[in-house]
Design a protein around this nucleic acid. Structure first.
Lengths: 209, 209
DNA sequence: TGATATAGGAAACGATCGTTTCCTATATGG
DNA sequence: CCATATAGGAAACGATCGTTTCCTATATCA
């Protein structure tokens, strides 16, 4: 997983006042994403993060306020990286139906093997924090709503370009697709093969009929 | 949620040797299921469990060995209760297609509203412990495999009774259904309406075409 | 009844947690 | 150069964690 192609740009007009930061926040957060995904939020100690991010606890608290701040920053970066890659995956295909197929394959690729076992940080956050942390819950909700909207746009596009039947309900189809994509990530937590996940992606295309 | 209809029967030939247990283990585990589902494993303290189960920490350790023992016992009971209810939900329908519709509605019922936000203990365990705890991972794998097998049996039955096309792959259809069911539970963690989940269940029937 | 075995529960245990303090280092602004 | 402002990091903090100890209570077996 080469995350570093995607960076959070800095305005870069004038250097800020004090001592400049010595570490790359994006690279550090990529490590935090991996740790949180594998160990969960409460299962991750600050020392785990410090080790993985190669920073001292003091520096972590200076940069991210507290443990929850690290999680939220990692969550936001995870979303940025994943949605950027998803858009790139579906962009080459002009037809709505082909965009959806590409999205399904993109998820099948992420949900299988070792990467699939690491899992999705949105799902980890939903499962562990959605009930007890309103801020985390809202970010999960936004993430799901955004993915749902991307799927819906593809369905609507497909209906206008003729690749998808005009008789299906775009909103409900998109929601069913969202459930299936999220389910692939959960099932992938126990280590499924590429072939299995690809077959699921294939079957999911039936939702467009 | 009236869990107590379903109990773990005791052999009941001769009373065991020492002082008899004063609490109902099934009822206590039902409370543990609720706590673990809402707070997660690492987010749940022994004191939380002691409060919910109305037992002292000492009694918990005497009965379940340690915190992980409580989780595994709660997990096993959760599976027993849920799979018993699932079987009851699909039993009245003779046709394979109708059994699958019943299973989808059963999940839609569990995945919406407040109960949906509490979530599924199998998914909570998969998300939080699958990578770090091999025993928990195996139980999740068995749970998924069992659900997948139930779906597959329904598809095969439907293909023999003519309610489902003989041209579809039963194993791959069952796996896609499993992903969709699990995805409903994840999406339901942020509180979806009954109508939304029912619509997803309806859409999922397309996988049988 | 007395020996044995298990349950209930108050209290205390060391370990580890998340967080803060405090000092040094390195930058900018005047 | 001196004031200001922020970053890095070692060390220490109280709080809480999971677990154990130890004693009492209640059952069966002989």
């Amino acid at each position: 997983m080469a995350f570093m192609e995607i960076t959070t740009e800095a305005p870069q007009q004038h250097r800020p006042r004090g001592r400049p930061r010595e570490f790359d926040a994006d690279a550090a957060l990529d490590h935090a994403i991996a740790v949180f995904s594998v160990r969960g939020y409460h299962g991750t100690a600050i020392s785990d993060l410090a080790d993985a991010m190669q920073l001292t606890p003091g520096s972590l608290y200076k940069a991210f306020k507290d443990k929850r701040g690290i999680l939220l920053a990692a969550f936001d970066r995870y979303r940025l990286v994943r949605s950027t890659k998803l858009k790139a995956a579906i962009a080459p295909f002009p037809a709505g139906r082909d965009k959806i197929r590409a999205a399904l394959l993109f998820y099948a690729e992420a949900a299988h093997g070792e990467l699939g076992q690491r899992g999705c940080l949105v799902i980890a956050t939903a499962a562990e924090l959605a009930v007890t942390d309103p801020v985390a819950a809202e970010r999960v909700e936004v993430a799901h709503a955004t993915n749902e909207a991307v799927m819906k746009d593809c369905v609507v596009l497909g209906q206008s370009d003729g690749s998808i039947s005009a008789n299906i309900d775009a909103a409900e189809t998109a929601r069913a697709l969202l459930c299936l994509l999220q389910g692939m990530r959960i099932v992938g937590k126990t280590g499924r093969s590429r072939a299995e996940m690809m077959a699921v992606a294939d079957m999911a295309m039936k939702l467009l009929d």
